[in-house]
Amino acid sequence: MAEETVLPSVIARSNGDASADSVRRQITALLPRLRRFALTLTGKPSDADDLVQDTVERALRHLHQWETGTRLDSWMFRIAQNLFIDQVRSKKRASAVMVSSFEGAERVGFDGTVRAEARIAFTDTIEALATLPIDQRSAVALVLIDGLSYRDAAQVLEIPIGTLTSRLARAREALATRVLGRKAEN
């Protein structure tokens, strides 16, 4: 980290001062929700944690872009979402094949010891989410799973509320068939 060594020591040291600690604590408290959001997007626990790691690093490095007084969670969700879209795009460019990011999704959650029942529910849900376009998947992750209001979710995704509402309606339709439909077959 070049800037750590070359800066006047007073500023280099402030990487861990009181106000920095407060932001770090807030970010730490957000980690479970960020992991869940990232898992909803990527469908794969290891990819999800990589995405969270990148998100946290970027958020701290670009902390000057966060406007004090606005929601830290919304801002970090947006970073995660944008990083994920970038990743998907660059993968697409690299392979010229649209590979679902859910392909090869691990059959277990973060915790390898989940109960079989929960595992089936998790895998089915993950597979159903994988069939959704990314913009619908994010809407589901933020509203249905994280419980954000339409206004907050629309802000994260930088879209009008009307657009969010129609994405949600379409996603609901698709998921009802796949998640609940598959469950009925079991």
Binding site: T28, P32, R35, L60, R61, L63, F110, A121
Partner: peptide, 28 residues
């Protein structure tokens, strides 16, 4: 169903390396 599927993620302890990143990664 969606909530139940992801409940596990919320309940679990966050991996050490992510906690360390939040605690130490360089600030703007």
């Amino acid at each position: 169903t969606l909530h139940a599927a992801f409940a596990n993620v919320i309940a679990q302890p966050v991996p050490e390396h992510l906690l360390a990143t939040a605690a130490n990664a360089p600030i703007s």
